[in-house]
Simulated assay, not measured.
Amino acid sequence: MSCSIIEPNDHVEVGPPVPSTRRTGNDTFAELTTIATGGRVGEFVRATREEEIVDAVRDADENGIAVLVLGGGSNLLVSDEGFPGRVVVDTRNSIDQIHISGCGGAILRGTAGTPWDEFVNVAISHGWNGIEALSGIPGSLGASPVQNVGAYGQEIADTLYSVRVYDRQTKKRTDLAPAELGLSYRSSKLKESTREWGATGRWVVLSVTYQLGLATHSTPIAYGQLAAALGVDVGARVPSVRLREAVLDLRRSKGMVLDDADRDTYSLGSFFTNPIVSESELPEGAPRYPYGDMMKTSAAWLIDNAGCRKGFGADLTDGRASLSTKHTLAITNRREATTADVLTVARRVRAAVAETFGITLVNEPFLLGETL
């Protein structure tokens, strides 16, 4: 069988070269993160070229300056004391079509600063599938492999082709294949390296390449709630545009699509990951999904059944922070909350689940200058 080659366009400009942040400004992390909390930034670098990013990080390392390469700020909780080091924001926002063929699909490379949802939208509009269920997730393209982002039955590991990085240890740029990234549930070697290297790990993501299918219909729907919203069975395929609309509606119903008028969206998305435990550790009635030799269960179910309902925690912070009024997995900034307020709610929720079920929840966002 021969494979037809579809001549790709050389370059797709996605939008203006600005970071995906809630508000403009460069003085505090409250202006640079979706939860709108956090103290002052020590030094701010807004990079427009790859060379600027590499130079800023290399110079910081050589001069003993702590460095944070910031994406969309949707997965970062910074202490109220702030970060005295150098914050580098990648403002590049574009996609290159590397290769498109009838057999190999579409191989697309996007700059790390490209907003993730814009990348998804471009893929769907061009008839490429594999990431449509990841619509509406805030943050940047560069952050997607760090967390192995996933939702509604799809995750980054399904379609990731390679990641272009600057290696702070070797001081060289290189391309990493998925097998080299140690991708696991909401984690990777990129994320794990922050334990040794600090706010930004050993590898600074410069661009990300995905390999997508050539199809205007979605991949088989793997998530029951999404299938129900679409009125189809699990395993069905629907037009990707229709699936995107359904995902966005579901995310909006949970306050998971950024909206300045909706305080439930002033959050970091899911604050806790779904626990992976042995079947014997699962509480009676808890959701259970096979995950290798273990079982994955619902953090939201555990939180709710530990007595922490929607809106929980407002009394602990004088109404400044609480669980979302739409979804128990998100902790929200209700009005001028501090990071300390957010952590007060998080710690109380975590303690309630541990006391009730003996399961310790793990935070999904990166905590800078703080711990649970």
Rank of each mutant, 00 (worst) to 15 (best):
D341G: 02
L212P: 02
N121R: 07
S184G: 04
H11D: 09
V349E: 05
G213Y: 05
V241Q: 13
S125F: 00
I95N: 01
A229Q: 14
A36R: 12
S253G: 15
R350H: 11
R109L: 07
D61E: 14
I6A: 05
T24L: 11
I100R: 04
E284Y: 02
F44T: 02
N93S: 14
A123Y: 01
V89Y: 05
F44D: 08
A177S: 11
V238C: 09
G82D: 05
N305Q: 14
R334W: 14
G110Q: 04
V349M: 04
V18H: 12
G358N: 08
E355T: 02
A340Y: 05
V247L: 12
T339D: 07
V362S: 09
F119T: 01
I156Y: 07
Y152Q: 10
L226T: 09
P17W: 09
T194Q: 12
V232L: 12
I124K: 07
R40L: 02
K171S: 14
A299Y: 08
L302T: 04
V57E: 13
D233E: 15
T339Y: 00
L141R: 03
W116L: 01
A354V: 02
G369I: 03
T194C: 15
I98L: 15
M256Q: 14
Y152T: 07
P178A: 02
S278E: 13
R237A: 07
F366I: 13
E281N: 05
A60D: 11
Y185K: 00
L212K: 02
N121C: 10
L250I: 13
L258F: 15
Q225G: 12
W301L: 03
L160C: 06
D259L: 01
R173K: 11
T194D: 08
Q211N: 14
P365N: 14
D304P: 09
G311E: 10
Y289R: 03
L214C: 10
R86C: 06
M294I: 00
D59H: 12
T339K: 00
D264W: 02
E43L: 01
R164M: 00
A306G: 06
R309W: 11
V165G: 01
G292P: 07
A123I: 00
E13S: 11
G139E: 10
L302Q: 02
I359H: 08
P84D: 15
G307A: 05
P287A: 03
G213R: 08
D318K: 05
V345K: 10
T159P: 12
W116C: 06
F44V: 04
V208I: 06
